[in-house]
Design a protein around this nucleic acid. Sequence first.
DNA 1: CGACATATTGACTGCCATCAAGTAGAGTGG
DNA 2: CCACTCTACTTGATGGCAGTCAATATGTCG
Lengths: 233, 233
Amino acid sequence: MSKMIDTDGFRKSFAAAPSERPPCSGLAELFEQSGAAMQFTRNAEIYCEDEPADYACRVVSGAVRICKLMSDGRRQIEAFGLPGDIFGIELGDSHRFTAEAIADSVVRLVRRSAVIGFATRDAEAARSLWALATRDLERAQEHVLLLGRKTAQERVATFLLGLARTSACGIVGRADQAMEIPMSRQDIADYLGLTIETVSRTLTQFEAMGLIALRTARNVALCDRAALRELNG
Amino acid sequence: MSKMIDTDGFRKSFAAAPSERPPCSGLAELFEQSGAAMQFTRNAEIYCEDEPADYACRVVSGAVRICKLMSDGRRQIEAFGLPGDIFGIELGDSHRFTAEAIADSVVRLVRRSAVIGFATRDAEAARSLWALATRDLERAQEHVLLLGRKTAQERVATFLLGLARTSACGIVGRADQAMEIPMSRQDIADYLGLTIETVSRTLTQFEAMGLIALRTARNVALCDRAALRELNG
DNA sequence: CGACATATTGACTGCCATCAAGTAGAGTGG
DNA sequence: CCACTCTACTTGATGGCAGTCAATATGTCG
């Protein structure tokens, strides 16, 4: 399902890229220095809900989904993890979500005890851990607003703009350049609290309105960001 | 709109009550010792979105709502603050939400700098701040699941059970005892991503189903918790 | 090419929102 | 104590957005 690999190549290339996403430089280094890189194939489980939270994770490449399943199969994706994102640090003893690879991915794992040790190292380290939780909180709160009060069009517009922002961090591309969508329609739907059909229809509408251009199902260009921001709410 | 008062009486009574809600004993003491108590009348604004975040808050008595407004008036309540709850600590310089009193309330305020100072005092203090953010994150994530995937009935059932849990902490009452609902139907609706009509109708349905008993609009008894938990998802 | 997963499109349904009365409580003044 | 008023809540009728069910299209990989 997943195997240990050596990823010095990955480490160097990502350490060189001045990513602005993770607010916690010290934590990132912790993963680079004492983390074990693991490869996960598409749809492989990284950890499961209620499983002991022995490890914390950082995405090196690929993409992951952090989600919850209801007893009848309904699924809600809380967040996507893209390169640089840290996830799986828990207050309690067990994971409160399931984490799965969306695409073939490399994830670095560090022991829970190492994170705790890091937190008690110095004030700066403790602050970065607090900042990480706070940033996750802010993201979750934006998500609450989206799910509670936005229409399908607004949700999809917000999603596209958010994805453009994160993918612009890694690849310094032009504004109107096409971007890859790493997740399936089902993933997008479960993130936005919609169905695949509604996501698909909304994207088609956006294309008809001239807001986006779909080169393939997984490759989209934002043609009219101003209009998308209007729809943002 | 709001005035400074002396609340030694409040402080003593609440310090005596062994509340299990706040996970951070040190932080609570910070508010009790160096916080200024302020009284807010119903619907008074405690702070406003985008306002400088000079103060953090802790509810002494009453209840508050932490919410966001969209440009066209749609409102989403992210969380309710009940006695003991701490809110308004921000990573950035400004508040990302509006906080308002739901009922006449007493709130203790401490300077942002005091919180920062507290965080750098020792490892235990830093940890409690991290734990606070993490707990808020967990609550927000549950909220995401509720708004993304639950039906109206499930949302209301979850809300009632949650309220019963928190009010059971302050007042050690019997399980089937009636509890006061401090917030209006509009507040509940804006918290659950519904309309007042749907909230009202759902409560009426629950009463017809024998799950709850509404003595008045703001006083409810949970008659069949097992059935409510079924609806929880 | 053929098989399978993924995505799109169409027809129809249903849950919840909207619009509109009607009712109940809380507070006020006579 | 009782009208009066105002706000909060409930109930009813109707509509629309997104969900469901179903068929077709587009990739993707052996």
